[in-house]
């Protein structure tokens, strides 16, 4: 079942009098349980594309459908609701809240999604158990290793069962061993919980866990 559809996505930025076309008509789909690696050199537009797929940016032209809901380009105010309901993010620099413990980091994202109270706490503990951090729930991010922080970030993305997971260079700040462990865990969980996973990466290891690799170059998808 297709969770993500993007067709002919164009994105132009205006800087002063100059208009720069970063994406020139990119199309990409992802289905439940599928892992897609999105590769490309720096400046190729892959992070911009990920932002559009994640409903953080709106495309200048084109069509994006997330979990059956079409993104209305004229209503950017609707985007937070789509993100809350359907998308989990994993960031290159983890982006955990330093003042919150591991379990609270996950629980807070659930609160933002509208899950409150003991239900949020139970779900947070479940996903932390799933990423192997049952014994690190009460730790603050500063007391966790890089790999553990990224596991918390993965747990946060999984919490609340969003059908689409988007990861931006999730192994960039990890050593190769920790990076591989995190990727394998991410793959296993995405498959087990039947989520679509799109990973933007430079890391060649990602190819080994992906079902499909898409390469973006100069704002266009290469085959």
């Amino acid at each position: 079942m297709t969770v993500l559809t993007s067709q002919n996505v164009v994105k132009r930025f205006t800087e002063g009098k100059q208009t720069v076309e970063v994406l020139k008509g990119v199309s990409l789909d992802a289905s439940r349980g599928e892992i897609v690696a999105l590769e490309g050199p720096s400046g190729s537009g892959k992070t911009t594309f990920l932002s559009i797929l994640g409903c953080i940016l709106t495309p200048t032209e084109g069509r994006v459908v997330v979990d059956g809901q079409e993104v209305d380009l004229s209503r950017p105010g609707d985007l937070p609701a789509i993100r809350r309901r359907s998308i989990g993010f994993v960031f290159q620099q983890f982006n955990l809240f330093p003042a919150l413990s591991a379990v609270e980091n996950v629980e807070y994202s659930l609160n933002v999604r509208g899950v409150k109270g003991s239900a949020a706490r139970r779900e947070a503990e479940r996903v932390l158990d799933a990423v192997g951090l049952a014994d690190r729930k009460a730790f603050l991010p500063r007391d966790l290793s890089g790999g553990q922080k990224q596991r918390v970030a993965i747990a946060r993305a999984l919490a609340g069962a969003p059908p689409l997971l988007l990861a931006d260079e999730p192994t960039a700040n990890l050593d190769s061993h920790a990076g591989r462990q995190v990727l394998e865990l991410f793959r296993d969980l995405a498959k087990r919980e039947n989520r679509a996973l799109v990973i933007v990466t430079h890391d060649p290891i990602v190819r080994s866990i992906a079902d499909r690799v898409a390469v973006i170059h100069d704002g266009l998808l290469a085959a």
Partner: peptide, 16 residues
Amino acid sequence: LKEFGTVKAIGGSNAD
């Protein structure tokens, strides 16, 4: 600021 950006990215609104 980055934390607030994260709150927004995970779906938080300006009201949050």
